[in-house]
Design a protein around this nucleic acid. Structure first.
Length: 517
RNA sequence: GGGCCGCUAGCUCAAUCGGCAGAGCAACAGCCUUUUAAGCUGCAGGUUCAGGGUUCGAUUCCCUGGCGGCUCACCA
């Protein structure tokens, strides 16, 4: 309460107490009531600045150089003369009539050198009293080296650009609390340099991928996120409702079916980088919304997609890390192509002794799986069982980049069957470091076969598989008009970023992750 | 959804067996004219996530709830 009075007393002293000003003061009091003690101390400074006729939130900024730029000039031995730098105060070391303050802008950090003799006693004292850690400031002066050789700005003038009322997290330990880090990401970014670097790397990865696809003749397109029918993947959707249309719409689970329709329309190479939404579990590798790149190449097939994957890994690794020899957790991984190719059947046989081509019925395979104490759901198909076996015994062992090829047909409703064995399809997934990063097919373009696959999915749905595809007559109709032979690929951007920035939770590569529950 | 763990000052963390809730940083009042997590003196800061229970007494033990994390199952 004493502090309230202190704040308000400043305000009072500088203004006549007309009725309007009384109302202003009451409104100010209401705001001050929302502040905690530390914020009130800082808010006093806002009022003090105003009392001296200084706007703590001015409209304009002057900036002659970025911090990175002056450092660059310094390294070249050039002196830019008088410069005006801006930034947030991140550290203050005062030793009497001299203060060292660090400021940081978007490009780097630099030390300000403030001396009473240079600024004048009043300005210097006002700086000490009213400028705090986290404030945005603008400082003008000349560059020099301190005794320890650190490039510093000898400040002649300093002014407030934006006063921070709330204190920033502790400088040494940073911000550790997970919940605060994700919910108030700005604090995390403000304090934790390595976090900022992860998101810069993410940007470089996406840019490199786009640049590669663009120069390979793929054109970037946009397809609906709100869809009357969802499809293109096996997953549970989010449902929403359109009031005027009076109908349910689904948030897309994949771009696939819309993109392939474009090839029917004679585009030859298309891609899209966008959010997909899947109404499923949340954990270290899954979020309800995630970013996917999908690309489709007419007159292509699986082998073209193998090349795209290898190229994308190379381009993105170089952009993010500058090397193909990356460290992911405990693993050293070499991303130099070509990557190994192993048939799913061989991989499973090697790790488990189970031959899925011998035990190629549901009952036979279930018996083999139950021997291994894995749970089998009644609605599972043969392909689901194969996938389960693969996920449990093979996937974690795939550290070096490996294409797993020949996926069961019933879990691959958009891939062409292999001519010599209709149980499996011409499909691969790329695995690195024990995780999956992409999925590609020689795309199914036979409308009759596609129709039968949709019918099969209906059967699975009736058996209780909530992820089964819905029949999409409109898509079958598109295929009837002719889809050229096509290779298609989807890659998870979030996971690729995790791999290339050595992050082990998807929440650490997404700025605002949906939190559990 | 199951199991395990966590929640204490603005931030990072302590608190013995159930016995006055503490430190560092940040803040506040000072000292200090080349610092690098600056230093020194002083001072202040708490709904110990919430609610209930056991107890003379609960940060601590029990129950319920909230919010997180890890993990298992499932999906990219």
């Amino acid at each position: 309460m004493a502090k309230d009075t202190r704040c308000v007393s400043f305000f009072f002293r500088s203004r006549a107490t007309t009725r309007r000003h009384v109302r202003e003061i009451n409104q100010l009091m209401n705001f001050i009531d929302t502040l905690d003690d530390l914020e009130r101390d800082r808010y006093d400074k806002v009022l003090r600045l105003r009392e001296r006729g200084i706007n703590p939130y001015p409209l304009r900024t002057t900036r002659t150089h970025t911090i990175a730029r002056v450092r660059e000039l310094d390294e070249r031995g050039e002196d830019p003369g008088v410069v005006t730098l801006v930034g947030r105060i991140t550290a203050n070391r005062w030793t009497g009539k001299i203060t060292f303050a660090d400021i940081r802008d978007g490009t780097g950090r630099i030390q300000l050198f403030l001396r009473q003799d240079n600024l004048g006693q009043e300005t210097y004292k006002n700086f000490i009293k009213d400028f705090d850690l986290a404030d945005f400031v603008q400082a003008t002066g000349t560059l020099f080296k301190t005794k320890t050789g650190e490039l510093s700005l000898q400040v002649a003038e300093i002014s407030m650009l934006a006063k921070a009322v709330a204190p920033m997290p502790e400088k040494f330990h940073g911000l550790r609390d997970m919940e605060t880090r994700y919910r108030q990401r700005y604090l995390d970014l403000m304090v934790n340099e390595d976090v900022r670097e992860v998101f810069r790397a993410r940007q470089r990865i996406v840019t490199a991928m786009r640049a590669y696809l663009d120069r390979s003749g793929f054109i970037e397109v946009e397809t609906p996120a709100l869809q009357p029918l969802y499809g293109g993947a096996l997953a549970k959707p989010f449902v929403t409702y359109h009031n005027e249309l009076e109908r349910n719409l689904y948030l897309r689970i994949a771009d696939e079916l819309y993109l392939k329709r474009l090839l029917v329309g004679m585009f030859e190479r298309v891609y899209e980088i966008s959010k997909d939404f899947r109404n499923e579990g949340v954990d270290a590798t899954h979020l309800p919304e995630f970013t996917m790149m999908e690309c489709y190449q007419a007159y292509g097939d699986l082998s073209d997609m193998i090349k795209v994957v290898e190229d994308v890994f190379v381009e993105c690794a170089m952009a993010a890390r500058g090397t193909l020899q990356i460290q992911y957790g405990e693993h050293r991984i070499d991303l130099t192509p070509p990557f190994a190719r192993v048939a799913m059947r061989d991989a499973i046989l090697e790790r488990t002794g189970v031959d899925i081509y011998v035990d190629d019925t549901f009952d036979a395979l279930r018996a083999r799986i139950e021997e291994k104490n894995l749970r089998v759901e009644p609605q599972m198909s043969w392909g689901k069982l194969v996938e389960k076996l693969f996920a449990a015994y093979v996937e974690p062992t795939l550290i070096a980049p490996t294409f797993i090829v020949d996926f069961p047909t019933d879990i691959s409703p958009f891939a062409k069957k292999k001519p010599d064995d209709p149980r499996v399809t011409e499909r691969f997934e790329i695995y690195v470091g024990g995780g999956e990063y992409g999925n590609a097919f020689t795309e199914l373009n036979d409308p009759e076969d596609q129709w039968q696959r949709f019918m099969e999915q209906q059967t699975n749905r009736a058996r209780g598989d909530a992820e089964a595809q819905q029949m999409d007559d409109d898509y079958v109709q598109a295929l009837k008009h002719g889809l050229p032979p096509t290779g298609g690929l989807g890659m998870g951007i979030d996971r690729l970023t995790m791999l290339l920035t050595d992050q082990h939770s998807i929440r650490d590569v997404v700025l605002y992750p949906q939190l559990r529950n």
